[in-house]
Amino acid sequence: MKEIIAVVRMNKTSATKKALVDVGAAGFTAEKVMGRGKLVEEKERIATRRANLMELAKAEDDKETEALIDSFLDGSRLFPRRMFTVFAHDDDVERIIHAIIKANQTDNNVGDGKIFVLPTMDIVRVRTGESGEYAI
């Protein structure tokens, strides 16, 4: 038995839910979390991203907007994300991970999320009291 923790973009929640149903692991727990990832240190990439964001803002020399965009990029900020927790049989883990990755990849190259796989000792279904593999 494994516990799969996936931290994904907020707007990918329904895509992830659908992917989980399609792969046969409909049960999940989702939570709203804040998080940050590995710091991007390549100057060039940050500059491109910054230019893109400034373009979106369409502000003319607006100090506030600039400060806000800078805070997005310097790593000081936590971003909202959705955290899915799914329990699965060992054999299904690979398929589930593949499905989550496929549903969540974007063109941004960063910020799409992380997936962690943890070992699980035991699972108990409250309704029947059965435990182990049957309880998933």
């Binding site: 494994k2 996936a6 883990v93 991970i97 989550i100 990755i101 992380k114 997936i115 962690f116 796989v117």
Partner: peptide
């Protein structure tokens, strides 16, 4: 502290 078996990055798989 708990054990983690595997880690994946979504953007690069």
């Amino acid at each position: 502290v708990s054990a983690v078996d595997e880690v994946y990055t979504v953007s690069t798989a």
